[in-house]
């Protein structure tokens, strides 16, 4: 079996006295889509933010393509912080998409996508913009390149944000509830871009409430509750009965909501 894209071992995250993640062990296979689901406050977003190193784990270890992210933890528990250059190099393997898009409002769509190519990768302006434009084309927004974020719909903003992450050619894409801030009729265009990306074989970790998306696109679904990983497996297993009572209850809530929307 090949090396997992991400390996999480005994991951613990505490904020002060409260433990947000408790002993998470999870392997995310390469080229697959892995969805993290669970109720609010279950720690799924915190887990994703740990993968992006926006949160520093309290203990435990994350490796990305076999390389330690942020900290190296020896089997005897001795832990050391890695040098900044190494942290940057490992972080560069991932791209992140946020719930609130987080496009920079003072730059056009093209500016947002080309910014890191220019400032971090030192590409000449022309080349950076050509690559940025190619990414915008990929998400179907080539004709919005010169629009500012405030002139774009939420769905378009999120697609620009995806293009911004893709422009840096990450090995793994992290999505933190990418459609939760969108009107229902705008979620489709973002999910379609994500489906295309999955079809290309991109490794993706997606925190989502879109159970339908998870069921149809994910290869692996992980269910978190109160900071613990209660279940992880292929969709066929997670939706099959019998299942963990807490997961059962969680999925029922979604089914109820779906039914009430139809009523």
């Amino acid at each position: 079996m090949s090396l997992p894209a991400i390996a999480i071992t005994k991951l613990v995250k505490r904020f002060g006295d409260s433990t947000v993640l408790q002993d998470i062990d999870l392997e995310i296979p390469e080229g697959k889509v892995s969805c993290l689901i669970g109720p609010s406050g279950s720690g799924k977003s915190t887990l994703l933010r740990c993968l992006a190193f926006l949160e520093e784990p309290t203990s435990g270890m994350i490796t990305i393509n076999g390389e330690a992210l942020g900290f190296f933890e020896a089997p005897n528990g001795k832990r050391e912080r890695l040098p900044p250059a190494q942290i940057r190099a490992v972080r560069a393997k991932t791209g992140m998409v946020f719930q609130q898009f987080n496009l920079w409002p003072h730059m056009t769509a093209l500016g947002n996508v080309s910014e890191a190519l220019k400032t971090v990768h030192k590409l000449p302006k022309g080349e950076a913009e050509a690559r940025a434009l190619a990414q915008l084309r990929k998400v179907g927004l080539e004709n919005r390149a010169n629009h500012y974020p405030s002139q774009l719909s939420g769905g378009q903003q999120q697609r620009v944000a995806i293009a911004r992450a893709l422009a840096l050619e990450p090995k793994i894409m992290l999505f933190d509830e990418p459609t939760s801030a969108l009107d229902p009729e705008l979620t489709g265009e973002v999910l379609n871009v994500m489906r295309d990306l999955a079809a290309e074989g991109m490794t993706m970790v997606v925190v989502t409430h879109e159970i339908g998306f998870a069921a149809t696109v994910a290869h692996q679904i992980s269910f978190l509750d109160h900071g613990r990983l209660l279940f992880s497996g292929p969709p066929s297993e997670i939706f099959a009965k019998p299942r963990h009572p807490r997961l059962d209850q969680f999925l029922d809530t979604y089914l109820d909501r779906g039914a009430s929307m139809l009523a």
Partner: peptide, 18 residues
């Protein structure tokens, strides 16, 4: 300045100075 805009800079590799 919303915190998320700074995080977006961080994850795209911009240095604190940039």
């Amino acid at each position: 300045v919303p915190r998320g805009l700074i995080e977006a800079a961080e994850v795209t590799g911009l240095s604190p100075r940039q």
